[in-house]
């Protein structure tokens, strides 16, 4: 299958030609397919946020290409604008960008900018609200009367309503309580299933990315350091720690068990850990 989004030899330099010159992306290349769930991890300042803004044409690469469905998004002005809609970008703390009088109007802002018909806008707003669990009643209230978690959902719905083929989220669960976190993560997963959309999620929670993603992109010092399934990435625990990253706690515990001589495999999620412990217990009972 052809990749939906591909970047080739992407370089980006901030304030080029001044004393503040800083290379934020250094020869980054990767491709993602439809329906994939990708996690992006990396230390603060490793170039994650810059990379995200390249993918929907907010920042223009210093050199290199961003291909959406095989065409360079910078080859034509119209394509660049199209890329904004086809690649949805949810920034960190998106609730601070709400501005409309009602939740409905705020979610409709993106579709309206796309120039869709009123009926289509209405359909999309209601569908997007459904994905994030915003009720009919809540659509009529001011977004500023909602709780923090609900505001975050509204802001995400505002991007989902554009029905992007690739949805990029920068730490969508930052600052939320455990229930809020779980809710938003399952909303994102629902959207992916329903639309066969590609999800790219920046996260600092190794547990979340281990559980949800098919593939991890690890950014380090403006370079793409690793591009592999979570299991393979977390097997390189030493390298990750050198980059200021970590591995899921449960993986750490099981590595400790191995060092104590307990015969367990590497695990990355709680579910795997439970299965492994059951196997161990079952095995012990048989012996």
């Amino acid at each position: 299958m052809n990749p939906i989004l591909e970047v080739k030899n992407l370089n980006y330099i901030y304030s080029a030609g001044t004393p503040f010159e800083h290379k934020a992306l250094d020869n980054v290349s990767f491709a993602v397919s439809r329906g994939e769930f990708i996690g992006i991890i990396g230390h603060t300042g490793s170039g994650k946020s810059t990379l995200m803004q390249q993918l929907n044409g907010l920042l223009k690469p210093t050199s290199g290409e961003v291909l959406l469905d095989g065409t360079d998004i910078w080859s034509d002005k119209k394509l660049t604008r199209q890329a904004r809609f086809r690649v949805g970008l949810v920034f960190q703390y998106p609730e601070y960008q709400l501005f409309e009088e009602t939740v409905y109007k705020d979610i409709a802002f993106g579709p309206k900018n796309m120039g869709l018909s009123p009926e289509e806008i209405d359909r999309r707003v209601r569908e997007a609200a459904g994905f994030v669990g915003i009720t009919e009643e809540q659509l009529k209230v001011s977004p500023f009367d909602l709780s923090g978690g609900q505001k975050r959902r509204v802001a995400i719905a505002g991007v989902i309503a554009m029905e992007p083929e690739v949805l990029i989220l920068d730490e969508p669960t930052a600052g939320l309580d455990p229930v809020g976190r779980a809710g938003i993560l399952s909303n994102i997963e629902q959207y992916r299933r329903a639309k066969n959309a590609t999800i790219m999620m920046v996260s600092h929670s190794m547990e979340d990315v281990a559980r949800l993603t098919d593939r991890l992109l690890v950014m380090n010092g403006s370079k793409l350091a690793m591009d592999a399934p979570p299991a393979q990435v977390f097997d390189r625990a030493g390298e990750l720690k050198d980059m200021g990253l970590s591995i899921p706690q449960v993986t750490e515990v099981f590595l400790g068990l191995q060092q104590l001589g307990v015969d367990v495999k590497n695990v990355y999620t709680i579910d795997q850990a439970v299965a492994e412990l059951k196997r161990l217990k079952g095995g012990a009972a048989h012996a």
Partner: peptide
Amino acid sequence: IMSAQKARGADFENGSLMERARALIPILVP
């Protein structure tokens, strides 16, 4: 905020003076 609204298709560069003034609302309110 400008980047975020641009990501939702807000357009600050084109259009008449009135349209451009109206385009500022999504920035000013937040």
